[in-house]
Write a protein that binds this DNA or RNA. Structure first.
Lengths: 115, 115
DNA sequence: TTGATATATTCCTATATAGGAATATACTTA
DNA sequence: TAAGTATATTCCTATATAGGAATATATCAA
């Protein structure tokens, strides 16, 4: 069996690093495909293909303006990602715990160096 | 070129729905592989394999206890996911905007039905 | 030591990309 | 209508899984 399809859900769509960059670049703007091409310096078909995946899961939507296609991010669709991560927030370390972890790590490293 | 490796980063590791379930199941606990097998009803090799991916990106860590391997979630590693999503929070619709979107959607649907 | 238990790994296969190149499609303007 | 611009799609290939089955490895217990 292959991996879950990139168009299966938001999590799979944003797994691709380039698509995250695309989203970061587009957020809050309305951009034409070629504007994105210029901003990112990617090949036009590559931009169109990644936009297509993002569109299929609803992360971006598109509007026709003459021969241009204007794309924008539907930020709402990223909410589930934040919400999914939120449920683990209570288990995150605070900065002091971080320090503690860091010290433990150093000790562990010293110990393994001794051997 | 194939897709980004599942072990490339946290985003790719959690793209697989089963691995998200695994994380949700394990959060806040220390669980043995077979305990997870029982909780989820998956095959043991499947659990071990998914744990292996999560371990490689640091989302879980493992401790040996006799012939058992005790796994736990490193919740810290899910922080980047929340943080990534956070940067788009200001662009999320509030409930009124949602209503607006909803009404627009209904109108659009009526229009396409007419044709 | 031997059998049993716990977990990891290997082998196999179907499948889904991502990127590159080429090309098709759509719209505009002279 | 023809040329030009903007964007999407198709074809190709290398690659990386996910799951199933079988098996290897590690540890415990009698």
């Amino acid at each position: 069996m292959a991996r879950t399809s990139t168009t299966f859900d938001t999590f799979n769509a944003i797994a691709e690093p380039k698509r995250r960059v695309l989203i970061e670049t587009m957020i809050g703007k309305e951009l034409t495909v070629n504007q994105i091409v210029e901003l990112l310096g990617w090949k036009q078909p590559m931009v169109s293909k990644h936009l297509s995946v993002l569109k299929q899961v609803g992360i971006v939507s598109q509007r026709k303006v003459g021969r241009y296609r204007v794309y924008r991010v539907n930020a709402n669709h990223l909410k589930p990602v934040q919400e999914w991560a939120n449920q683990f927030e209570q288990y995150w370390s605070n900065s002091l715990d971080y320090l503690d972890d860091y010290l433990k790590e150093i000790k562990a490293r010293e110990k393994s160096d001794e051997q």
